[in-house]
Amino acid sequence: MIHVENVVKRYKEVIALDHFTFNAEKNEIIGLLGPNGCGKTTAINCMLSLLTFDSGEIKLFGKPVNPNDNDIKRRIGVVPQELALFDKLNVYENIDFFCGLYVTDKTKRKQLVEEAIQFVDLDKYRSFMPKKLSGGLKRRLNIACGIAHQPELIFLDEPTVAVDAQSRNFMIEGIKRMRENGATIVYTTHYLDEAEELCDRHVIMDNGKSVAQGTLTELQNSMTTEGSLKINFVETEEAVNAVLKKYPSISRIEKKNDNFYITFISSDEKLSDFLKFIDEEGLTYTELTSEKPSLSDIFLELTGKELRD
């Protein structure tokens, strides 16, 4: 469905996409993840032919992208990061207008607009102007405008940003339904728990490159750390830290609530060796759980913890 190979995009000295490569199969949700400025939106804009790129190849539906290929465009839906609505058109008219850019048949369009309104549950608000809608409702309208024509391939660029948990959950369920209806979705977000729940595969980007991609299990298996231990110690934080620092193969120690999360450098680390060590050091624990790294752990491991611009 999507084939992106070695795409390079430069803005003068800045390389926005650095030999970026990824593929997406029909009917899957691909999470395009990465810190701010890593090139996610640039990648989407290149796939949509909005941006030129310096080298590499992008194919959608098996055909190279071309800004004049309306047959390909007709099969694509776009939900941009920013709200792209008309203030002077009401909910129904906004959806109808953008749907009309793809579907000229009036009867069919009317049916599609109704379906889109039901899909984002905006029926009560169909005659409302966008400025009368809450942030979450505007986001839902923004999605409806991009998917009303029922495209096969949908680009959703941070659609849930700045919405409440209820609206977010509603949107996530809606996106799952789109996949069930046969759509392929490229999804960018900063909410990694959301991506973990929603996406079939993930592409983690940093500095314009794809630094890792695969299913969550594949990413977990590819990590140097097998996982982390969650331990509840009886001793004070200072005492525990002083002891754990002596253990050579620990890469990270985090304290959350009453628990310590300990990550090891090597996946070959034996739990029995570590338990023997803390026993010898005189630490007492009340609870111990072994955890696989979350998408967030993997993301931070790959992209680092330092703050980005």
Binding site: N45, V78, P80, C145
Partner: peptide
Amino acid sequence: QPNLSHQGARFYASPT
């Protein structure tokens, strides 16, 4: 125009 407005991306990505 996509470089001047948010709606522009939608226009240019559409077959119209």
